[in-house]
Write a protein that binds this DNA or RNA. Structure first.
Length: 111
DNA sequence: CATGTGACGCCTG
DNA sequence: CCAGGCGCCACAT
């Protein structure tokens, strides 16, 4: 049983709030938990002990890149993550990244 | 207590 | 437009 800190729980709590068919970026998630560092968020998800209860695969980079999954960045693992998102209804681009419109962020009606 | 690493993000060249 | 570097927070050693 891995000891999780309060910060980790916050990250998991926010991650669990992500609706199916959408993803959240590390940066946005970081801001939501009142943390200005996306790295700290990644660290939490990396050791996600509540998986798959915590949909860490619904968290991607600001560019829409899957970045990593299950603590790995192997194309095989990322491909699995992509498949999971696809099953949720998330759309992808030829770049192998999540479409911006599927990413929950403060972008909204801006632009 | 200090140093290094890590699933990122943004700025500069 | 692409590549590289620095900054950030938390955690492990």
């Amino acid at each position: 049983m891995r000891k999780v800190t309060l910060f980790q729980q916050r990250v998991y709590d926010e991650t669990r709030r992500i609706p199916s068919g959408f993803v959240l970026t590390y940066g946005e998630l970081a801001k939501r938990i009142h943390c200005g560092s996306p790295r700290a968020v990644g660290q939490a998800l990396r050791c996600n002990p509540f998986a798959p209860e915590v949909p860490c695969h619904r968290v991607v980079a600001s560019d829409g890149s899957l970045c990593g999954f299950a603590g790995r960045q192997d194309a095989e693992t990322l491909g699995r993550k992509k498949a999971l998102l696809l099953a949720e209804g998330v759309q992808f681009t030829e770049d192998g990244k999540v479409k911006p419109e599927c990413i929950l962020k403060s972008d909204k009606g801006m632009k």
